[in-house]
Design a binder for these strands. Structure first.
Length: 837
DNA sequence: GCGGACTGCTTACCT
DNA sequence: ACAGGTAAGCAGTCCGCG
């Protein structure tokens, strides 16, 4: 009997069996456990067995149907029991994807769909049927099979911690208890190894191509999370060794004269790795190693790397490509607060580890072996540290998201938030015996959106903004609805089956601002799940992550769980409005925003009725001017009672400067820190020259304590503007400081309708330089030539179009000057722009 | 042929 | 392949103008 952590499930095509990958903590190893139950791939159909057999025969191929069984399911959309045929086949590919597959055969009958649950990957189907939870511990016995370890003692402790929480919604108790059990099991410091390779390239700036591995692998570095580091280096005639002692101080070093031998040693290593970490290993390191080895005549069986459909796999371990994970928008924004903009190892590492790649002055191919080794090692070190920093934050997030989504760790790290949430819901449906609805059924039953968006091309109306009251406002308290949209989904019972339900008596339960209504008879599935997760985050883990009375270690644990929940919850509304989401339900999505609009309007109305001025608000927040503590208390209590949602003080400002622009303000905290939202001076693409001036202004504004301090501040700000203005006029600036940095969002030839300035600059670069593509940041300055721009590296100081920069300076400052009631053009000594024309 | 008013495109931001 | 709303700057178009 072994105790081990489930990391993922996969399918073995040659054995035609599902298998589980377990991590044995004591041995630091992965082992595989093959399905002992004879579980088969299947899908469901509303047709009877005889008809199905007929359709299969008619499909003309030898579809290996194993068995057809009758099963009962609950159809939530129609609120009734249904009898379905469960059609088992021999191989997952025959369910869906292949030509003449079972799904096609079933759907060929008549006009309606007849195949259900046919688009679920077999590895996930297996997880759902057995209700397995990746990230949890299991007892594995070769004879008795696997058993989820319900470590009752620990779990009871966790539940006891929360026992007295009267705050939790009693309707959700059992759902909450279920999730708490998952979150309470500890996550081990899984042994893992990072890998990075370097490949020779004869041309400058040319990146080797994994599909055509014509050049040798010249080094590889392995770093594990137990302190072991190793570099493998290929000796080459034309290259100096350098001082290799310096490398030996940092890692074990192994030299090879034969590349084949080096590759073999790399493979020996990979075979022992439980969890392999790479940065872009799916697109480069692993395919290159595999293809290069094949090209050099190493036999396929000796290479522990396989190209899967969704990723490059290793055997028997698990491969996590961190590039994919950090690329995930939800992770980028909600877990790491947009700390990195471009997903490169250098930028992500600098943002999260405060340490980047080694800067090279020469090409990789001409580095001394010493420098090459150190460079390669650093990449592997960074890759490892991205999972170890902050008490294994990233690894813990991955495991927690696995537990929530029920996807294996390879899927979690490679798929987006909608796949996570879909999987979570599929698992719940399967576990409760509910039929997983087809997307077209949901639309047919519930309809499309009915509201009109403000932005052209969007599907429905979104949030509203309380127009800002222009000026400076002292004593601002920002009150917000905590987790507004998840709260709405919870408190209004929203779910795909409860919106516009079939019961006549529910039609009175209207959603404001829409023609929709919500079921009063049944509790919505999404509402329960999202509601439970919301309560767990808002009521339990978030407050505890800040509770000074418990140990730092415990706080960290609460923090990572609440962060994982935040990622899921923040997207839970969005996916319902995303066409490609398998539970896409526009009426639910637009009901969420409609109720949100209703709530912010109501709370604004109530505040004003109480005599509190609301100077601004956006989606889920209201900026209250000089509210008394008692008033805040009263407003919160009112919201809870009347609106059935929680409100909290999000922040308090000494003062806020508002222009008439929405999503655009500056707030100063009591301690002098400054909060800047949406202002040009904060944007990444703004030239340093402007940003520096803006930051000087921000520093001054941070020191303002009262209305009368503004007089002095005004004078100092005017001086900043004047100085910058003069510098521009006199051309006393660094060219680099005038650079606009704009990211290309698509290939250059895809800009068809217009040619924006950064594209113009990029095209100039193209003429005498290498490839430029999506994701590249284009650096350009505004010049007086016909194009109006030049790439930084081709421009000269004399070509700068000073007027353009004065305009940028003006708009940057005007955003704040508006609030202070100063006009840029009236700042003494500056003549109006138009006078120059 | 030119310029102002307008719309649309693009990027970066906010919730 | 989560959503909609906003600011800003520029590109491109239309229309009026003897």
């Amino acid at each position: 009997m072994v105790k081990a952590l489930l990391l993922s499930v996969d399918y073995d095509g040659s054995l035609k069996k599902a298998f589980l990958k377990f991590y044995n903590e004591e041995r630091g190893e992965i082992f595989k456990f093959y399905d002992p139950l004879g579980h088969k791939p299947y899908c469901l159909s509303d047709l009877d067995p005889e008809r199905i057999k007929g359709l299969v025969e008619a499909s003309g191929v030898n579809l290996p149907v194993v068995k057809i069984k009758k099963v009962r399911k609950k159809d939530l959309l129609r609120d009734r029991e249904v009898h379905m045929s469960k059609v088992e086949v021999d191989d997952p590919l025959w369910i869906s994807g292949r030509k003449n597959c079972l799904r096609e055969a079933l759907n060929s009958y008549g006009k309606d769909r007849h195949a259900w649950e046919a688009k679920i990957k077999y590895r996930n189907n297996y997880i759902y049927d057995l209700q397995l939870i990746p990230g949890e511990y299991y007892e594995i016995d070769e004879k008795e099979g696997i058993r989820h370890i319900d470590s009752k003692k620990r779990k009871l402790e966790e539940l006891n911690v929360f026992r007295d929480e009267a705050l939790l919604d009693p309707c959700l108790h059992s759902e909450i208890a279920k999730w708490l059990k998952l979150f309470s099991t500890p996550i081990p410091d899984i042994k893992r190894v990072s890998l990075d390779i370097e490949v020779y390239s004869p041309q400058k700036g040319r990146i080797p191509y994994a599909e055509k591995p014509v050049y040798p692998v010249i080094s590889a570095a392995f770093v594990d999370n137990r302190g072991f580091k190793e570099v493998l280096i290929l000796r080459r005639e034309a290259v100096n060794e350098g001082d290799l002692k310096k490398v030996k101080e940092k890692a074990d070093v192994r030299y090879f004269d034969s590349e084949i031998e080096m590759l073999r040693q790399i493979f020996v290593k990979i075979k022992e790795i439980p969890v392999l970490l790479t940065f872009n290993g799916d697109n480069f390191d692993l395919p290159y190693l595999m293809n290069r080895a094949l090209r050099l005549g190493i036999r396929k069986e000796q290479i522990p790397i396989r190209q899967g459909k969704d990723w490059f796999k290793i055997d028997p371990g698990v491969h996590i490509d961190l590039y994919k994970f950090f690329h995930n928008k939800s992770i980028q924004i909600y877990a790491f607060r947009d700390a990195y903009k471009n997903v490169t190892l250098d930028e992500v590492a600098k943002a999260l580890l405060k340490k980047g790649k080694i800067e090279l002055e020469e090409e990789i191919s001409v580095l001394t072996l010493e420098k090459l080794a150190i460079y390669c090692l650093r990449d592997a070190e960074l890759t490892m540290e991205l999972t170890t920093f902050n008490e294994n934050l990233v690894l813990n997030l991955v495991i927690l998201i696995s537990k929530i989504s029920k996807l294996g760790v390879e899927d979690v790290t490679r798929r987006g938030i909608s796949a996570w949430i879909r999987s979570m819901l599929d698992f719940e449906h399967r576990g409760k015996g509910y039929l997983i609805p087809l997307p077209e059924e949901i639309i047919a039953e519930k309809g499309e959106a009915t509201t009109t968006s403000i932005i052209k091309g969007k599907k429905y109306k979104g949030a509203i903004i309380i127009p800002p009251e222009e000026g400076v406002h002292f004593g601002i308290t920002v009150l917000d609805f905590s987790s507004l949209y998840p709260s709405v989904i919870k408190s209004r019972n929203l779910s795909y089956e409860t919106i516009n339900c079939r019961h006549v008596e529910c039609k009175r339960n209207k959603v404001p601002d829409t023609p929709h209504w919500v079921c009063l008879k049944r509790r919505g599935l999404l509402s329960v799940i999202i509601g439970a997760l919301r309560d767990i985050r808002v009521k339990l883990y978030k407050p505890r992550s800040k509770d000074e009375s418990i140990s730092k270690k415990e706080r960290e644990r609460y923090m990572v769980i609440q962060q994982a929940l935040k990622v899921i919850l923040n997207a839970s509304y969005g996916v319902l409005g995303a066409e490609n989401f398998s539970y896409y339900c526009p009426p639910v999505a637009e009901s969420v925003t409609a109720i949100g609009r209703h709530l912010i309007r109501e709370v604004t109305r109530k505040a004003e009725e109480m005599g509190i001025q609301v100077v601004y608000g956006d989606t889920d927040s209201v900026f209250l001017k000089n509210p008394a503590d008692e008033q805040i208390k009263e407003l919160k209590a009112w919201a809870e009672k009347k609106l059935k949602v929680d409100m909290d003080i999000e922040k308090v400002y000494r003062y806020v400067a508002l222009s008439n622009r929405k999503k655009n303000y500056l707030g100063v905290y009591p301690d002098g820190r400054v909060d800047i939202k949406g202002l040009i001076g904060k944007k990444k693409n703004t030239p340093e020259f402007i940003k520096q001036a803006f930051n000087e202004m921000v520093n001054i504004l941070g020191q303002v304590k009262s209305q009368k301090d503004f007089e002095d501040a005004r004078i100092r700000i005017e001086k900043i503007v004047k100085d910058r203005y003069t510098a521009l006029r006199n051309r006393t600036f660094n060219l680099e400081d005038l650079t606009f940095k704009v990211v290309l969002s698509k290939p250059l030839d895809k800009y068809i309708k217009t040619t924006p300035q950064h594209v113009k600059a990029a095209k100039q670069l193209l003429k005498n330089r290498r490839k430029i593509g999506p994701g590249d940041t284009i650096e350009f300055v505004k010049t007086r030539n016909a194009a109006g721009v030049k790439p930084l590296e081709l421009a000269k100081k004399g070509e700068i179009d000073v007027e353009k920069y004065i305009e940028t300076l003006q708009s940057t400052f005007q955003q704040i000057l508006d609030a202070l009631n100063i006009d840029f053009e009236h700042i003494a000594g500056i003549t109006s722009i138009s006078d120059f024309l």
